[in-house]
Design a protein around this nucleic acid. Structure first.
Lengths: 210, 210
DNA sequence: AAGTGTTTCACATCAATATGTGATGTAAGA
DNA sequence: TCTTACATCACATATTGATGTGAAACACTT
């Protein structure tokens, strides 16, 4: 028996979902609420397995509710429920520990399947959501993975620059003269197409050279 | 009719999958291969809708195959197929534009459903994989998002530093004297607990101040 | 009204950095 | 062998940066 709490501001939908889920074998709706004002206490009191959480709610919305829940409880599965698959909310929800993200237009049979999946540790997602998630991953990619052809020694020097070492310190650290350090740095600037330490350090981070 | 190419080094599994898929209505296996050596040419020649790609293959593996495909083709849907849901491969695959990631133990009916989902632009994932993906998201979270209490003006100066501006340039840019710039920078160093421009720039990136 | 933090400016000094020019030895490739 | 890239060192000089000390104007809070 999977125990469920439901958060949904629309009374009709709240009633409908409750009847659908509660009327199905193996599912029990413990309670339903129209907003997340007291979400922490409610979760504490009812100890559900799965929470169905609408995103758009007046007062405390679903994302905020999720955050509050996760401040106290990392066990309960939270399934986000929404009309739109807008990028920003999806990312926010997942980042804050949602266990799944499904659209309200999901057919009833599929919804029950998703709840079951969430309860057993899965991460059900409507396919359009999943597609977005994948897109976020590929967007993380470095545009062209620029290489700059830094030699090993040059990378080493750049690493020290990033750590805030002075030329003198780098020289001591690498057992070379300060002039050699200069020479390396000059070369690094050329290769990175920059002309100051700050830019080199910034570029090192941006392009994940270090 | 969904057209499919299959990459799988195990002959039994390759045959089995081919028969299963090709024998189902609406699915057609155009060809199957035991490695990705000529993946680019093969995709070009057969123009499939979906590619089922095993990860572990001798020679050119699935991840590498995926990369090669994506260098030329961003349209074809690539479904990664694997025995293990090991973190590293999942991330690599998704980062390189895989459209889905499913385990080989997926039951036949579910497999066909996943292929259909991929073909229609979805992103099918075995639930254990989806869980991992979500975990990666929540791990991306900034530890505590340190604040450092930089004033607006100080943030502005820091931003310029990151862009590689000299004190003189910052002064000109902000219509203040170079001494004021110095004063701001001094304060920034104090607040960030650093004592050089490079460290400040590095910290700005690390802690996402800029 | 006194205190606090921000923003602004000034003068001074020493350390560090950027840039140019030039040179040597070594290892890998064409 | 000749070339190229790398790593090393040297000398010179102008600019920039780090740090200290001091101070005035302003907004906001107590």
């Amino acid at each position: 028996m999977i125990k469920i709490i439901l958060y949904e501001d629309n009374p009709q939908l709240r009633e409908g979902l409750t009847m659908l889920i509660d009327g199905s074998d193996g599912f029990q709706v413990l309670a339903s609420f129209k907003n997340c004002s007291n979400v922490v206490d409610e979760v504490e009191a009812f100890r559900p397995d799965v929470i169905l959480m609408d995103i758009d709610m007046p007062g405390v919305n679903g994302i905020e509710g999720l955050k509050r829940i996760r401040q106290h409880n990392h066990e309960v599965k939270v399934l986000m429920l929404t009309v739109f698959d807008d990028n920003k909310n999806v990312f926010e929800a997942l980042k804050n520990g949602a266990n799944g993200y499904i659209l309200k237009k999901t057919p009833p049979a599929k919804l029950l399947e998703y709840i079951t999946e969430a309860a057993s540790g899965g991460a059900p997602m409507t396919s359009s959501i999943a597609t977005q998630v994948l897109k976020m991953f590929s967007e993380v990619q470095v545009p062209a993975g620029e290489d700059y052809n830094l030699s090993d020694r040059e990378k080493e020097v750049l690493q020290h620059l990033v750590n805030g070492f002075s030329y003198k310190m780098i020289a001591a650290e690498m057992f070379i003269s300060i002039d050699t350090v200069r020479s390396h740095i000059k070369k690094i600037y050329e290769k990175l197409h920059v002309n100051s330490k700050s830019e080199a350090v910034a570029k090192a981070f941006k392009d994940k050279i270090v």
